[in-house]
Each structure stands twice: as structure tokens, then as C-alpha cells.
């Protein structure tokens, strides 16, 4: 996949460079520049054909829509990745906090239940042990 993407990147860079050169030729056109311009037009069409060929190999690439928004606003798309990672980490920490709190609650509950219903808790623990053993 990486190779295909690199190939597309190369084609795009070539195409952009070709367009830039064409712009320079056209910006102050000289009559002797016509053959060069024709050559550049041919190169441009070839570049389009090559990019079009890459399309078939990159059908399964999925791009988040928000990345487009970042680019449209003239912002670095790496900031999107950064924001995503920071949000994931924050959510991860949040969930971890909840799990830890629930674990604490569970142990506290078991402790209190053990005081009030010692026999039932003993049975429960034994049942759990059996389940665990069978599971492993």
C-alpha cells in the first residue's frame, strides 16, 4: 500500500511541477516557446493518465472528512492526527478512571456484603472459582 501511495505522490509532484513550468512559460510567452508549451501539454495529459491509473489501486483508502476541512482552512493535516490522538488519550484516561472507580466500588461492596451475608459470599466466591477454573 505504501508503495502505491508513494507512486501516486511522485506522479502528483511531477504533475504540479509540470504545471508550474507551464505557468512560467505562459506568463511571458515568446513565439519560440510554442513547441515547448506543446510538449508540456503532452506531459500534462500523460501525468493525468498516470494519476488516473493509480485510482484503481487505491480504492480501499479511507480519508476522514475532517482532514479535508483542515486542508481547506490552510491548516496542517498533521494537527488532525494530533487532535485525534489527544482526544483518544483523554477518553482512554476517562474510561480508565471509571473502571478503576467501579473496581473500588466492587471490592468495597464485596467487603460489606461479606460482613452481612458471609455464607452467601462464600458460596459466590466458590462458584466464581469454579467458573474461572473451567474457563481456563
Amino acid at each position: 500500500m505504501a508503495e502505491k501511495l508513494e507512486q501516486l505522490e511522485q506522479h502528483l509532484e511531477q504533475f504540479i511541477e509540470n504545471t508550474r513550468q507551464m505557468g512560467i512559460i505562459v506568463s511571458d510567452f515568446q513565439p519560440q516557446g510554442q513547441p515547448v508549451l506543446n510538449q508540456k501539454i503532452h506531459a500534462m495529459i500523460t501525468g493525468m493518465q498516470e494519476i488516473d491509473r493509480c485510482k484503481a489501486q487505491l480504492q480501499d483508502v479511507q480519508v476522514p472528512l475532517e482532514v479535508f476541512e483542515y486542508i481547506d482552512q490552510g491548516r496542517n493535516p498533521q494537527l488532525y492526527t494530533k487532535d485525534c490522538m489527544e482526544k483518544s488519550l483523554a477518553k482512554n484516561e476517562q474510561v480508565k478512571g471509571k473502571i478503576d472507580a467501579l473496581k473500588k466500588f466492587r471490592s468495597q461492596l464485596m467487603l460489606e456484603l461479606d460482613k452481612v451475608f458471609p455464607e452467601e459470599i462464600a458460596k459466590y466466591k466458590a462458584a466464581r472459582e469454579i467458573v474461572k477454573e473451567e474457563h481456563t
Partner: peptide, 28 residues
């Protein structure tokens, strides 16, 4: 679950440090 560091679990520490460790310049 969320009780483990999922970034570490999926082997994304390098990417995390790359993007969040240093300041990413804003302009495209």
C-alpha cells in the same frame, strides 16, 4: 478495555510522540 493504555497496546507510541511530543506547525 479502557483500563489499559490503548495507544501503547496498539503500538502507536512512536506516532503519539511524533505528533504530540513536539509542536506541529500550523500552516499547510
Amino acid at each position: 478495555t479502557g483500563s489499559v493504555n490503548l495507544i501503547q497496546h496498539h503500538g502507536l507510541e512512536h506516532s503519539f510522540h511524533k505528533f504530540c511530543g513536539k509542536k506541529v506547525k500550523e500552516p499547510l
